[in-house]
């Protein structure tokens, strides 16, 4: 390969210009590859039709006192509980400072609608769905929900009380459109 030596000699003469050229071209190529990767990754994010379905409306009047139901929102279960006065009282008399994820029951429900508790029904540990909807389900040690996967216990405000989960059950964004209609999302 006699020509490599030859080429090296040429390098010295045009070094600056070639370096500039080389670096600019390589940089542009890298930017181009990056620009190509972006649409590919972006295509994995929720599509426009998925995003447009991100609200759910339902009628809450059918949920009797003491009853708990599941509504589907964004493909996930949402627990809707119509709490009894005893359950509300149990949730309110807890010393908040002793909780793993300190939160008052009052901030987890809507004012004047505190009998209704609306929660994303996904355990904050690793995403299983806690039991406690049906009357004969296990409700855990605190009368709320119990996640069978790894034994997390939630109370009647959906707060984590025992077990590996780090956080309380999430309260989704929702509003009462009327006394009976609730929109989640």
């Amino acid at each position: 390969m006699a020509n490599t030596a030859h080429a090296h000699a040429a390098d010295a003469a045009g070094e600056t210009r070639r370096d500039f050229l080389l670096h600019t071209t390589v940089a542009m190529g890298a930017v181009g590859a990056g620009m190509m990767v972006w649409p590919l990754i972006s295509s994995m994010n929720p599509a426009a039709d998925t995003l447009s379905l991100s609200t759910t409306e339902f009628n809450i009047s059918g949920v009797a006192e003491g009853q708990r139901i599941i509504v589907v929102w964004r493909g996930k279960p949402v627990f809707v509980a119509h709490r009894t006065p005893a359950e509300i009282e149990a949730a309110r008399k807890v010393d908040v400072s002793e909780l793993r994820d300190p939160q008052k029951d009052e901030v987890r429900v809507k004012k004047d609608k505190d009998q209704y508790l609306i929660l994303v029904g996904v355990c904050t540990h690793l995403g299983c769905i806690p039991l406690g909807i049906k009357a004969n389900d296990p409700h855990g040690d605190f009368g709320g929900w119990f996640c069978p996967c790894h034994g997390s216990h939630y109370d009647t405000s959906g707060r984590i009380r025992k077990g590996p989960a780090p956080l309380n059950l999430e309260v989704p964004e929702y509003q009462f459109l009327s006394d009976t209609t609730v929109r989640i999302g």
Binding site: T24, T25, G32
Partner: peptide, 16 residues
């Protein structure tokens, strides 16, 4: 990019 690549190619091939 094609323009730059052309200049770079010409530069690299100058003595071949």
């Amino acid at each position: 990019f094609a323009g730059l690549a052309y200049l770079l190619k010409r530069r690299i091939w100058k003595d071949i």
